[in-house]
């Protein structure tokens, strides 16, 4: 099932701000005026360096934080302010999260079937224990594990298998959106590819949308339909994967792309990555507004910058 861009967006984030008060005089603006949309069945990749606010956005959307300002609309429901009981329940079913470190996010004292089945118990989905076991087994096979694995504990698995358990747990309630927060960065390179391929297969079969948060641009390129580039809490550039990779406009995006090492020694040996320093670049993110490049490609900048960069 391919992404459906004609439908209503599944998730719409408008002017999201997330500030943290550190002391009376100091406030961290982790996310500052970020807007984007995720359509049903698509993968939206959020990239940025550490401290750019990409994880904070994920956590604000799933409401682990209370957003300071802005609206978040998910599946037609407003989830940014105080939610009604029903909205809260729907949100907890339809939006799920996969975390970075599978060992830290799985309870070491629980069996895999109880870790995965916990959501079924909480939401009273199954009428009998047999039905629950059946559902857990079905989801295990879907993520490439065997049903014998259901009775094991997390420490008996390898890193890649543990992340598969994490994905199974997120999938069990058949959610519409999965937020994957750096879900492959803790894995070995060859295993990363296996997990990315698995996520793609599941998307094709079930039509789940992903908000894929990562700092590894080369992996993001493989999985994402559209990409948003974050820096210091501002969404600087967004567009389809092709638009971002073939025609980056913002200097920060350019420096980010040039920093990816090319696995071609004769080319890479003498190449120097582009340098970008916010302090000396003369760009003020807070003054920027959204400018359309073409299609779905937007960049956040002032009018003069826009004229300069697109020349």
């Amino acid at each position: 099932m391919a992404a459906n861009y004609n439908a209503e967006p599944l998730l719409e984030v408008k002017g999201l701000k997330q500030y943290f008060t550190v002391s009376k005089t100091f406030m961290v603006k982790a996310v500052d005026d970020v807007s984007f949309k995720v359509y049903p069945g698509e993968t939206y990749g959020l990239v940025g360096e550490s401290g750019s606010g990409k994880s904070t956005i994920g956590r604000s959307i799933i409401r682990l934080y209370d957003p300071t300002a802005g609206t978040i609309t998910f599946n037609g429901m407003d989830i940014s302010g105080k939610m009604s009981r029903q909205t809260q329940k729907d949100l907890r079913v339809m939006m799920q999260m996969v975390f970075q470190d599978p060992m830290a996010s799985l309870n070491p004292r629980k069996k895999i079937k109880d870790i995965i089945g916990e959501a079924l118990d909480i939401h009273n989905v199954c009428k009998s224990a047999a039905e629950r076991d059946e559902k857990v087994e079905a989801i295990l096979t879907k993520v490439g594990l065997a049903k014998e694995h259901a009775d094991r504990y997390p420490h008996q698995f390898s890193g890649g298998q543990r992340q598969r358990v994490g994905i199974a747990r997120a999938l069990i309630l058949n959610p519409k959106l999965i937020i994957a927060d750096e879900c492959i960065s803790a894995l070995d390179v060859s295993i990363q590819a296996q997990v990315v391929n698995l996520m793609k297969d599941i998307q094709e079969e079930l039509g789940t949308a992903y908000l894929f948060i990562a700092h590894d641009l080369s992996m993001v390129k493989y999985i994402s339909d559209r990409i948003g580039v974050l820096h210091l809490g501002h969404l600087l550039e967004t567009g389809t994967t092709d638009e971002i990779f073939n025609n980056p406009v913002h200097p920060y995006t350019k420096s980010l792309l040039s920093a990816i090492p090319i696995p071609n020694p004769e080319l890479e040996k003498n190449r120097i990555a582009l340098n970008y320093d916010y302090k000396t670049s003369g760009i003020d993110y807070t003054k920027g507004t959204e400018h359309l490049i073409d299609g779905t490609h937007y960049v956040k900048c002032t009018d003069e910058e826009y004229a300069k960069w697109t020349k």
Binding site: V189, I191, A193, V196, M219, I260, P263
Partner: peptide
């Protein structure tokens, strides 16, 4: 061969990444 094939390659538009089957 496997390691080189499994590298994400920015130059192609392949839909799937090659993986070395199994684990170490």
């Amino acid at each position: 061969w496997g390691l080189l094939s499994a590298m994400p390659d920015l130059g192609t538009d392949d839909e799937r990444l090659y993986t070395i089957p199994g684990s170490p």
